Amino acid sequence: MTTAPTPLLSAQGLHVTFPGRHGTAPARAVDGVELDIRAGEIVALVGESGCGKTTLARSLLGLVPPASGRVSFGGKPLEYSSRALKAYRRRVQLVLQDPSGSLNPRHTVYDAVAEGLRIHGYAGDERATVAQALSRAGLRPPERFFLRYPHELSGGQRQRVVIAGALVLEPELIVADEPVASLDASVRGEILALLLRLRTELGLSALVVTHDLGLAWNIADRVAVMYLGRIVETGDVEQVLTAPRHPYTQALLSVLPDAPGDPVVLTGEPPDPSRIPTGCRFHARCQILASGEAERAGVAEACRSRELKVLDGGGGAQVACHWARAAV
């Protein structure tokens, strides 16, 4: 029996909490997450705003220490000393949603891309390394962009500069938080194609954080759907997005332009993470419970009162839903 290769990046029993306001209970922003990302793999982390996906991404980057659980990279637990985190961030880089906010308007493109090299005391040929990163990000000839400022670039070009700034340190993994949300449709496709090309050419792994299941379909090998601090469905992207089992995933997919049937309109907002409901954390908004289908399946009481186990991070098809499990 062969053992599975060690994941490149792994979250194990991860919990991230924030202090409550005015003496209220702590907010459980990440509430027990297991997630593995393998070398050369693109994983999409999907969910509504406020579900905890950005906090999870920031914790995986070492920006937010967990209350419990751990993050491992290459099989070794992440250490939180300044020196260890600096070394880690050469290997794992962040690409943010808004390129305008990521770039200092007073810095040229060259300085923006070279910044990481200077922080890490790079001793090689800085000019050649910056040029290579810009070229890999699709800005060619790179020298034409060296002395430009962010306001002189299009939105797509600015995002490519941000990606070049991540690539310049030759990381093994990038965490892209809504990498195309601020771009128009034509440019979105170009940036997604770039990320796929970088995976092919450089063996780069990626965690792509998004609210858009259509984006996940176009770029990811695997998808993890997050709700109220926990992953509620995961598996190969085609399997999850063609035959979603969790009612929350079904609702997210139903509003895509080409989705069959009527959109599922979820009532209310996601609950406050300081007051997570008993039972299934989605039950108060669940269309399956509201329609009586869960009652007919004999699981309605379990939905309201029995908590589901945390899904493991291995990547096989899994769902945290009493009704979906009863239907198997």
Rank of each mutant, 00 (worst) to 15 (best):
M1G: 11
T3W: 04
P7L: 13
L8I: 15
L9F: 11
S10Q: 14
S10L: 12
Q12T: 15
Q12C: 14
H15K: 11
V16M: 13
G20N: 04
A25D: 08
P26I: 02
R28G: 00
A29P: 02
D31T: 09
V33Q: 00
D36E: 12
D36A: 10
R38W: 14
A39R: 15
V43F: 01
A44G: 11
G47T: 06
E48K: 05
C51I: 07
G52D: 04
K53P: 05
T55A: 01
A57N: 01
P65C: 03
P65W: 08
A67R: 13
A67I: 00
A67T: 13
S68I: 04
G69H: 05
G69R: 06
S72L: 15
F73M: 08
K76M: 09
E79R: 13
E79V: 10
Q93M: 03
V95M: 15
P99M: 08
G101E: 11
G101N: 13
S102Y: 12
S102W: 12
N104K: 05
R106Q: 12
D111H: 06
V113Y: 01
R118Q: 13
R118E: 10
A123R: 15
A123F: 11
G124P: 03
D125H: 11
A128F: 13
T129G: 08
T129S: 15
T129W: 14
A131G: 13
Q132K: 15
S135V: 00
S135M: 12
A137I: 04
P141H: 04
P141N: 10
P142M: 06
P142E: 10
F145Q: 09
H151C: 05
L153C: 07
L153Y: 10
R160H: 06
I163P: 07
I163S: 04
A166I: 03
L167Q: 04
E170P: 02
I174L: 12
I174V: 15
A176H: 02
D177P: 07
D177W: 02
D177C: 03
L183P: 06
V187C: 00
L192K: 02
L194E: 08
L195A: 00
L198R: 06
T200H: 15
L202E: 04
S205D: 05
S205M: 06
V208S: 01
V208Y: 02
T210E: 05
H211P: 09
L213Q: 00
G214P: 05
V223C: 02
V223W: 04
V225H: 01
M226H: 04
R230T: 15
G235L: 08
D236E: 15
D236N: 06
V237P: 01
P247D: 03
T249D: 08
L252E: 02
P257Y: 00
P260W: 07
P260T: 02
P263Q: 11
P263S: 09
V265R: 10
G268I: 09
P270C: 11
S274C: 03
S274K: 02
C280F: 07
R285A: 06
C286G: 11
Q287M: 10
L289V: 15
A290Y: 03
G292D: 11
E293G: 08
G298T: 13
V299M: 09
G313F: 08
G316W: 01
Q318N: 14
Q318C: 05
A327M: 11
V328I: 09
